[in-house]
Design a protein around this nucleic acid. Structure first.
Lengths: 230, 230
DNA sequence: TTGCATTTCAAACGTGTGTATGAAACTATC
DNA sequence: GATAGTTTCATACACACGTTTGAAATGCAA
């Protein structure tokens, strides 16, 4: 492992090609041609095509997840262990949206790759996404602290809708631009984040101004989640 | 075209297999084996594999679109040319959600096929979806009538978020069930529809109680449940 | 029946794919 | 500079796929 030049050339070329043309249209031969390496190098360094894709995706999504958790942690610490629901939703959808639509990263290879991964959903990527559940539980826990009294089901639905809006915006940004004939500005990421957060919060608080200490006390939901770690 | 027995056997077998195992894992040979017809029959009757898939998808989505427009039309007529925003959103997301999650159609081949189509997004299906824009413009027009004064961009965003929530719920229903450990009931379609409609309306009206333009009943054709907070 | 169009069939075609092989070229350590 | 371990390379393998072919079977009208 003296020099991983070949290895990283493959990663870079693969990410670039997948981002440009999608997973369905890019073969290993395309990748090694772009990277100027030998065909067998892919299997030598990664084992298989799927493991190459998985490594690409894991690398990128680990970064996003780390960013998410950092934002969440910062928000909770700033609030003395309890973050506002706005801050939590912001930490949830901000990194993903910025990563895929951000003006700085606009058109960056990494961003375009992640958009492809969101749209095409190839088997190795699906496998990884299914392990993401643990990561989301941390957000549920934070939401529970922020909105005590809300039933867990409500929290899950709120989280689900927040992810729905952010992922769908990434997936369908082109169609939305076309449909709205450019009236929806997809370049102003911060505005999009704020918009998604605002709707998510409304979904969770029922449109009432976010208030702690719910006047109508509800019976605690039946089953708490077991210990969450990792 | 004396008897399209072969043709329809292929369609039925293909829909069943695609629904069960996804587009990536099903070959023409699998399909013709399931249908008990000859391999060449697919190309004879449909021209190509992609055209077969397209025909499957078009058939199913035409039905949904028709249902959508019927609901919209009924709501507008009931409101004297102007439907409530609730009814419009209901017409937009109701048919899709019921079609894919409905208890009657629960596990039906057609429903499972459409879920697959929503998840895997294979080229011929993507091509068709991109033509769906015209269809959505009718909803934008209705929304404009229902919420005059709202900027068009706001309407587009509201429509976009409504589709986001309904599609994401269909796509990720398994993950939501797993994440929530069954606390989110994905069998009660009507409740889901109401939930999505409620959030969509909030997104459009900014959380303020709807001005409820039409004094008429805004009950859409299909049974409407009152939103239940937990 | 005859004649013609439609439909079915078995078999193959051609290609593109991920992967495996085994030798050659390198690199580092002594 | 010999040796062992690592990396590169050209090449081939195996095969699964959508599609094509051309003949056989079937249907249908006169």
């Amino acid at each position: 492992m003296a020099s991983d030049h070949t290895r990283s050339a493959i990663l870079a070329a693969a990410e670039r090609l997948y981002a440009d043309r999608g997973f369905g249209d890019v073969t290993l031969r395309d990748i090694v041609a772009e990277a100027n390496v030998n065909l067998a190098a892919v299997n030598y360094h990664f084992g298989s095509k799927d493991e190459l894709i998985a490594e690409l995706f894991v690398t990128r999504s680990l970064a996003t997840n780390r960013e998410r958790l950092n934002e969440l942690k910062a928000a909770e610490e700033a609030g003395g262990g309890r973050a506002s629901i706005e801050a939590i939703m912001h930490a949830l959808v901000g990194p993903t949206l910025r990563g895929c639509l951000g003006p700085d990263r606009e058109g960056s290879t990494a961003a375009r790759f992640m958009i492809r991964a969101s749209i095409e959903s190839v088997p190795p990527i699906r496998r990884i996404k299914n392990r993401e559940v643990d990561h989301l539980r941390k957000f549920v826990a934070a939401m529970r602290r922020s909105l005590p009294g809300r039933g867990d089901a409500e929290l899950y639905w709120g989280l689900h809708f927040a992810l729905a809006m952010s992922h769908h915006t990434i997936r369908e940004k082109e169609r939305l631009t076309k449909l709205s004939e450019g009236q929806c500005d997809l370049n102003d990421v911060n505005a999009i984040v704020e918009r998604v957060v605002a709707v998510s919060v409304m979904a969770l608080t029922g449109g009432e101004p976010a208030k702690k200490a719910p006047a109508r006390s509800m019976a605690p939901p039946y089953g708490r989640l077991t210990r969450q770690d990792l």
